[in-house]
Simulated scan of single mutants.
Amino acid sequence: MPSPESSASTVDAAARTTGYRSPLLALPGAVPAESPDEGVAAHYGNPHAEQRALVEGSGFVDLSHRGVVRIGGKERLSWLHSLLTQHLTELAPHTPTEALLLDPQGRVEHALYVVDDGEATWAHVEPGTAPALVAFLTKMRFLLDVDPQDVTDDYAVVYEADASGPVPAGALVRGPIQLGEAAQGREIFLPRPALSDYAATHSHPAGTWAYEALRIAAHRPRAGLETDERAIPHELDWISTAVHLDKGCYRGQETVARVENLGHPPRRLVFLHLDGTPEHLPAHGDPVELDGRAVGVVTSSARHYELGPIALALVKRTVPVDAQLTAGGVAAGQEVVVSPEAGGNARERLRGR
C-alpha cells in the first residue's frame, strides 16, 4: 500500500472528532451517533434489520471517526514487539491481530487493531486517541528505523460484513475477522476521499448501534467504555486476544505476569441480560448493584435484535456468578465472561503438587 503524502483512552477521547461529520451521514435515513461515536451514523432507520444484515454477511459500517496510525521503517515490528502486549516480531503480512499499550503499572492506555502490509504496520484506535498514541511512540523512537504517523486525515476505517469482495483501489484490508455471531467480515483502511464513492457502490449501510450490539453480544471490550484509569487486561478478557503470555519484557508486563501467575484481577467483565420491561437502557457508568449494594458499573449497553436489551459491566471479582443484579435500576442476569478464578495459574499448579 502506498505511503500517504503526509502524515489515555477514555470516553472523552472522542472530543477530537468534534466538528467531524462523515459524508455518509448524507445517506437516506442516517441518524447521527453520540459520543464516543459522534461524527458517524448511529443507524439508518432500522437498527435491528441492520444487525441482522451484518450477521448474515451483508452491509457495511462507517467507522471513519476512528483514528488511524501507520508505522513505517524496517525495525517497526521488533520495536512494536518491545512496547506492546502482542507478539509482533514474526507477524506475517495481512494477518490481523490486536495489541494493547499499557502504562508502567499494567493499566490499559490504548487498544490497537493491527495489520502489517509488508512495508508498514497499520492500526486503528479509538476516536481522538491517535495523536496521543503517536506522540508516545515518537518519544520512544530513539535511533531506530521506525516512523509512527497519525494518518487519520488520510484514511477512513470501514467494517465490511462480507470478507470475500474485491478490495477498493488504494485500500488495505484487515481481516478476515469475526464480529461475534456474524459471518466473517473485514475492516478496510480506505483512502478518505474514496469514502463517498465506496458507499455509492455498496448496499445495506449499518450504523454504530448495530455494530455495538453485536460487539457487546460477543463480549468484546472496547477501550474508553470497558476501561477506566484502573483497568488491566485480565479484567476484560483481553488476555485471550491481545496479550501474548510467552514473550519478553514490555511496558506493564510485570503486572500481567503477576496476575497470570500469582493473583486474580480485582474486577471481572460480565455480560448482562437485562429486563426488557423498562424502556430505558442503563448508561455507561451506571451502578451495578447486588441487594442494594454497589458492586460494579455498567460499561456498555445496547438492544440486540434477538437477545433484547443487553450490557457489559465490570463487577467485583467476588460477586457470585449466579447472583441476580440490577444495572442502572434494571434487573439483570449475568453471564460469565471473565472467571472469578482468572489468573493465579502458577499458584494453582503449586497447590496441585
Results as ranks from 00 to 15, higher is better:
S6M: 09
S9N: 07
A14F: 01
G19R: 01
S22H: 01
P23E: 14
A33D: 01
S35I: 07
V40H: 09
A42W: 09
Y44E: 08
N46D: 15
P47I: 07
E50I: 09
R52W: 11
R52V: 09
V55C: 13
G59T: 09
G59K: 05
F60R: 06
R66W: 02
L77N: 07
S82A: 15
H87Q: 13
L88D: 01
T97D: 04
L100A: 02
A111S: 11
V114H: 02
V114D: 08
V115P: 01
E119V: 08
A120P: 02
H124S: 01
P127N: 02
L133Q: 00
K139P: 05
M140P: 11
L143V: 14
P148V: 02
P148S: 04
V151R: 02
T152I: 04
Y155N: 04
A161P: 07
L172K: 00
P176L: 08
I177K: 05
L179Q: 05
A183D: 06
Q184R: 12
G185V: 01
R192Q: 08
P193E: 09
P193M: 10
S196C: 00
S196N: 04
Y198L: 05
A199T: 06
A200Q: 03
T201V: 00
P205Q: 04
H219I: 13
G224K: 06
G224C: 06
G224L: 09
H234C: 00
D237W: 00
C249P: 10
G252H: 09
G252R: 05
T255V: 14
N261M: 05
L262M: 11
G263T: 05
R268W: 09
L269V: 14
H273F: 13
E289C: 03
D291S: 12
D291L: 08
V295G: 05
H304P: 14
R317F: 00
V319G: 06
P320R: 06
V321K: 05
Q324A: 15
A331L: 15
G333D: 14
V336K: 03
V338T: 04
S339T: 04
G343A: 06
L350Y: 13
R351V: 11
